[in-house]
């Protein structure tokens, strides 16, 4: 097992375990913190795949932005004095059936597919290409995405304003 394999498995274990905690934990804050670890683990995978830009974006947006917002929201909406941030498991039976079914299908696909192993791509700067592609081939989606975000921003600002 090479160093990279070791790191991969370490990240994999961290990610999977913390993902389980996200789902199973009864305490929302614990779930949020586990989500932090999960997202971090996923960023680690991106690094291992030489997708450095995506890895850092993952950290920046998901952890620095969304997760913080999430914890912030949970904290602001509960009282500090009585910590009752509990979640419940409902419909355990039906969800278990679905989970097992989907897992079985996925494993079946994984095992039966004839995977083609590609040559290991040499480490390459991705960021130049991403930048160029975003402003040439994918300019329209890029602009649409930015307009949607702008709309969301304006909408949020409108809602946040005090109605006079």
């Amino acid at each position: 097992m090479s160093l990279y394999d070791g790191i991969f498995y370490a990240f994999a274990i961290i990610t999977v375990v913390s993902a389980f905690i996200v789902v199973l934990s009864k305490n929302i804050i614990y779930s949020a913190v586990s989500l932090f670890i999960t997202l971090f683990g996923v960023a680690g995978f991106f690094v291992l795949l030489h997708a450095d830009f995506i890895a850092v974006t993952q950290i920046m947006i998901y952890i620095g932005g969304i997760l913080v917002l999430l914890i912030f929201g949970v904290m602001l909406t509960t009282k500090i004095t009585d910590v009752k941030l509990k979640t419940k498991n409902i419909n355990a039976l039906t969800s278990a059936i679905f989970v097992i079914g989907i897992t079985a299908v996925l494993i079946f696909i994984m095992l039966t597919t004839n995977w083609k192993v590609a040559e290991v791509v040499k480490y390459d700067e991705t960021i130049d290409k991403i930048g160029v592609l975003l402003l040439t081939d994918y300019l329209l989606p890029f602009e649409i995405a930015s307009i949607i975000l702008l709309i969301a921003l304006i909408g949020a600002a409108m809602y946040a304003r005090k109605s006079k």
């Binding site: 804050i29 913190v33 932090f36 850092v56 974006t57 950290i59 920046m60 952890i63 620095g64 932005g65 997760l67 913080v68 914890i71 912030f72 904290m75």
Partner: peptide, 12 residues
């Protein structure tokens, strides 16, 4: 990006 990680620590 990494400095924004410390925000999580502070919040926790």
């Amino acid at each position: 990006a990494i400095t924004s990680l410390s925000i999580v620590g502070i919040l926790i």
